[in-house]
Design a protein around this nucleic acid. Structure first.
Lengths: 250, 250
DNA sequence: TCGCGGGTGTTACTTTTGTAACACCCGCGT
DNA sequence: ACGCGGGTGTTACAAAAGTAACACCCGCGA
């Protein structure tokens, strides 16, 4: 993954004063505003399910599980990031969500024999892999954990519905804005009015999240940059100005 | 709700031989091919949660719960049909799903303080209303029920993702086809190669399920009728020829 | 019985989106 | 050092979807 920032920053589309801002990992690592998936490591989930299990390391871009897989296991992310989505028969890709350490991935196998979705590591990622059967068994011994599991599903469901809304009602630009602000609240690292997205996502991937063509996203992104809503940090990571973003939101 | 069948059947768009077929309630009521939401009445859910509770009757078109509601209760449908969806600030509506007796409705309140969705009875509908708290409590006493609840959420999530796929990848006609075949498998009543949809849905509602304008749905529906995929029964209920439908599906 | 309201069918027009094609820039490996 | 490949920016053009407007048909209630 190269980081063609200079290209972007100097591109003909640039007309204003957004210097590539200096944020990278400088202010990062502080409280992210994640509200997406409950951290399954609180609520004793870790105490019950995770101890004495080895974590598996996934390399960047490696497939954690894929469409058609028949193994039924949940992945508890301990570090890194993963995109979850699917690939249609014709090869076109859709991304439902990006998840980070503390989130679960692979929940859908609860009702499936063969997976209909897939997850791919966006960065080097460590995960604890637990067979679905064993998750359900620890639920029998520790019923309070059910709350956590229900919460995981419920949040995912709510977000999926939000995505349906956006696709049904919004145009490309507003879908993009929702994708970006979703990323900001889920995995963003805040510093003042700016939020940095700590993973590198290609325009193609953003397009797959927004349900639009990459070319449109490219144009929309530049229009947002001219309005000061989007910038790029030194490492090519996106930085959002949430104050500037908010007025466009609902 | 009027049933303008004659209008439809005799409309200028008609060019072939689809007589309004005689099926209504004649062959109905037999095993529907529902696979959508697990019947929560199996698996002892009813034994534990539902006995000694009164069922509430909802009139056709009455709102079971609405966007913004702060009460947290699940509704276990015992008869009838309900659409679940939402209304945007500008009034535009989106429908996520149609559910029938045996299904739950209102699950989303598990993580919300204020509901972001709404459910409306499509027919006179009876439901057992159970506060979410009590559901979780019976889970503590009867941990095996967790399987059922997880299943409910997981199926809803899987279907929501399918909807996202369709909106991202399909054009209007294919989205319509998926909506129809989804209705067929969820609430359809089968008789031979034909499946009847036992609720009356306006084109507007179908459009809200497909994420498209009513006008397009009207046209697409007529094109499907000319191809023999869709017919109307005597009471204005849709009837699908699943054999004719299948080739268009994936 | 007359008119109204709701649902449907259809069309001309506008807007949005997708498609195709290409140029550019960069970093990397040969 | 050079070229290649991947990611980005941009445009002209074609296709799809939304908009607006209207006609029709029906059932129902005044």
């Amino acid at each position: 993954m190269t980081s063609p920032i200079l290209d972007i920053v100097k591109s003909p589309a640039r007309q204003d004063s957004d210097q590539s801002v200096e944020l990278d990992d400088a202010l990062g690592r502080q409280a992210s505003l994640s509200t997406a998936l409950v951290s399954v490591f609180r609520g004793n989930f870790c105490d019950f399910i995770l101890p004495n299990r080895k974590t598996t390391a996934f390399k960047k871009h490696s497939v954690i599980y894929d469409v058609g897989d028949r193994e039924r296991t949940l992945f508890f992310l301990r570090s890194g990031f993963a995109k979850v989505g699917t690939i249609a028969v014709d090869g076109r890709e859709v991304i439902y969500d990006v998840r980070k350490s503390g989130d679960v991935v692979g929940e859908l196998c609860a009702t499936e024999k063969a997976r209909s979705d897939r997850a791919v590591a966006l960065e080097p990622t460590d995960a604890v892999c637990v067979p679905f059967e064993e998750v359900m068994q620890s639920l029998l011994q520790q019923p309070a954990l059910a709350t956590v599991l229900v919460d995981v599903f419920c949040r995912a469901l709510k977000e999926a519905y939000a995505q349906v809304n956006s696709m049904a009602l919004d145009d490309t630009v507003h879908r993009l804005i929702k994708v970006l602000s979703g990323l900001a609240t889920k995995i963003g690292q805040r510093s003042g009015p700016l939020v940095q997205i700590p993973v590198y996502l290609t325009q193609e991937e953003i397009a797959q999240m927004a349900g639009a063509r990459r070319e449109r996203i490219s144009t929309a992104l530049n229009s947002l940059r001219r309005r000061g809503i989007v910038q790029y940090s030194a490492r090519g990571h996106m930085v959002l100005d949430i104050d500037a973003l908010e007025p466009y939101l609902p």
